[in-house]
Amino acid sequence: MDYLKKAVSLIQDGDRYYGHGRFFADFIDDWAYRQTGLHEPSRPLREEVETIASNLSHTIRAAWEAAPGEDFLGHVIEESGGSGHLSFFRTPPSVSLLMAKMMGGSSRLEDFADICMGSGSLTLAYIHQTFLDGGASAVSRLNLMGEDLSGNKVKVAMLQILNLLDILGGDRPLYVHSMRLREMNSLSREVGTVQYDFSGPNNPRCKLSNEQHALISQAVSSGVSEEVISQRLRVPLNLVRRERKSA
């Protein structure tokens, strides 16, 4: 399947309700919030685009699973013109992979910084190469730091990194030692509002209430999909997955 073509087509469908470039930005804001529970969107997705957004998230996830470590959302942004007022040029996968291999690894904690990271191309390639070279134990030693002027790109990078860890881990959780992603002007060092600071388990700040535990358990036992549970209960998707696995 041509996932890129399908994703761009779905974004164009969403833009009919929003105007060019606006749907994808709101889609990322919504998905990032559901994934982490951090940085609530300034405006919820319109009811008219819920089906489009669901299909788009499934398409993106399938593309990630088909080619782990590749910057699929960066490619989508290039093709759909969704970079907003900032110019955006994705690092080619071959270059990202080459740089990841050149950086190597060690048996100790490994620091990796991606300045002006955009959609996270270099970080994704580095995580994937680390996993191929040393498995889960090598990934667990990574201290990742990334920053970008665009808060939306920081959210894109976060989504791609967390989902890559989920895909590589399979049935077992896969974590980095720490990950700090920030909206920041790399020249002036002015810090923006979007920040993700994870250590160990990907989302330590996100906890479910007893009521949410019960509702998710009921929904899972009834065969409701993880995405629908997340959307309806406004619960981060990764926590729904954890709850299902522990049931």
Rank of each mutant, 00 (worst) to 15 (best):
E147V: 08
H128R: 13
G84T: 09
R141Q: 13
G151R: 01
D114T: 05
C206V: 08
L144H: 04
F88C: 02
R172N: 13
S137W: 05
E110W: 11
Y196K: 12
L86M: 14
S186G: 09
R141L: 15
L162H: 02
Y175D: 13
I161C: 05
S87G: 15
F131V: 06
N202Y: 08
G192I: 13
R90P: 05
G81R: 14
G146P: 12
S96Y: 03
Y196V: 10
F88E: 05
A157V: 10
V194M: 02
S96I: 10
I115C: 05
I167N: 03
R205N: 15
C206H: 05
K207Y: 10
S150M: 12
P93W: 06
S186E: 01
H128P: 01
I161T: 07
L164M: 04
V139H: 00
R172Y: 08
R141W: 11
S199I: 14
D133M: 09
H128L: 01
S107E: 11
F112D: 01
S87T: 14
A100Y: 04
S119W: 05
F88D: 02
E190K: 15
S96F: 01
T91G: 08
R205C: 06
C116V: 05
P204M: 10
F89T: 13
P92N: 01
D133H: 12
L165Q: 05
G146N: 02
I161H: 00
M179Q: 12
K155E: 04
Q195T: 11
C206G: 04
V176C: 10
M103F: 13
S178L: 07
L174D: 03
M117Y: 03
S188G: 04
G134Q: 09
G151Q: 01
S107K: 14
F88Q: 04
Q129L: 07
V176G: 00
M117N: 01
